[in-house]
């Protein structure tokens, strides 16, 4: 059965850039769905949990910190990798404390995203 990945980023350009770096969905047998904000992410996840969430931090409606917190309240086993331009140590410490698995800095690469899927999917 195909694994489900949710890509959460308010920027369409950013989602395009990340999608280009993901390995082929046939190779890793996954389905990708996109959400353009934290609220939508929580709505989607509530309907059907995902195997992996790729989450941005800087978003206008609900930022990634709040989204992550609510997501982990909803599902303490939610697997979330942060993909962000916010590369500050304090941001990383905060998301790890909230249960994120890893922080990937933007712009990412095919090697990095393949490694992420390899490790967490």
């Amino acid at each position: 059965m195909k694994k489900k990945i949710l890509l959460v980023d308010d920027s369409m350009m950013s989602r395009l850039m990340i999608k280009k770096c993901l390995p082929s969905s046939d190779q890793y047998s996954y389905e990708l769905q996109e959400a353009d904000g934290g609220t939508k992410c929580l709505d989607f996840y509530r309907k059907a949990p995902y195997d992996l969430v790729l989450l941005d931090l800087t978003m206008p409606d609900m930022d990634g910190f709040e989204t992550l917190e609510k997501l982990r309240e909803m599902d303490p086993d939610a697997r979330v990798v942060i993909v962000t331009a916010d590369i500050q140590q304090k941001a990383a410490e905060r998301v790890f404390a909230l249960g994120a698995l890893e922080v990937v800095k933007k712009p990412t690469s095919q090697e990095k995203m393949t490694a992420v899927l390899e490790k967490y999917l």
């Binding site: 920027s11 350009m13 950013s14 850039m17 962000t84 331009a85 916010d86 933007k106």
Partner: peptide, 11 residues
């Protein structure tokens, strides 16, 4: 442009 500034200002 928004994404480039987002990344640049992140740095």
């Amino acid at each position: 442009l928004q994404e480039i500034i987002n990344i640049s200002f992140g740095r």
